[in-house]
Amino acid sequence: MATKTAEKKATSRELTKMQWKLKEAKQNWVAYLMVAPYMIFFTLFTIVPVVFSILLSFTDFNMLEVPNIVWLKNYVTLFFDDDVFLIAIKNTFIFAVIVGPASYLMSFLVAWFINELPPKVRAIVTLIFYAPSISGQAYLIWATLFSSDSYGWANAVLLKLGIIDTEIAWFQDEKYVMPLCIIVALWTSLGTSFLAFIAGLQGIDHSLFEAGAVDGVRNRWQELYYITLPSMKPQLMFGAVMSITGSFGFGGIVTALAGFPSVNYCAHTIMHHLEDYGGQRYEIGYSSAIAVLLFLIMVGANLLVKKIISRLGT
């Protein structure tokens, strides 16, 4: 409303839109002063690195020599001449496709299950589920539980039950590294989106449920589908962004548990490839191309899922 009347005033004074904007900007110069400190640092440490990566990805910069422009050569090499990168892409997608949706679903279901518990109990259950995601390197305990000797819990149980007769080196065996890392990633994945869902469920206007019950909603599943989900769409959207971004970025768990590089690159992700070329071989141009692809994949996945959720229930 306010802007509409403002615009009318503008035309009556025969100001162009541009001039009006300028006037508005001048009137609110304090606002620019207030956003400036944050925006300057944000630009410096987020926008500049992204733009810079894109530019560098077209060069062969290696920190020592003057960079040459090589156009798309880095990208071509990545897709046609770098087998390890193809493994990395495959693994990253496997991780993301499993961990992203699974953690999202788990966050939502747990939040929904505990929604009707008394507040004190709910707080305790929330803590139990949320704790692993904030406890730093607590996930290293999985290396103890699945250690390669018989003092590891998994080996001990299997030995005792007579299922195996020699210890399994869990994190050195190609068969087990990926599944185990996925389990550990899930264990740490009930984070911000989980809290957002709890809050979203608590915030739904209760009269909606009453009205729904009167209108013939018969059970909790119908209630979930017709009332709960549509009422917390904004939280679902925010949670999706948090889960997706998280699911692409957990290479750290793999490094800590399975080493770097993992056996035969079996759990090598794009993040590891980036670390390898950027952090260790200083092939900055090449690693920038990797970073740009990772950026495009993450943002693309997020925008896609946001679009899907925004169509939910319409």
Partner: peptide, 15 residues
């Protein structure tokens, strides 16, 4: 919010 610091790690280092 849609990407994490891995993407900017290398260029941040140069910065």
């Amino acid at each position: 919010l849609m990407f994490n610091s891995t993407v900017t790690a290398i260029t941040s280092f140069i910065l």
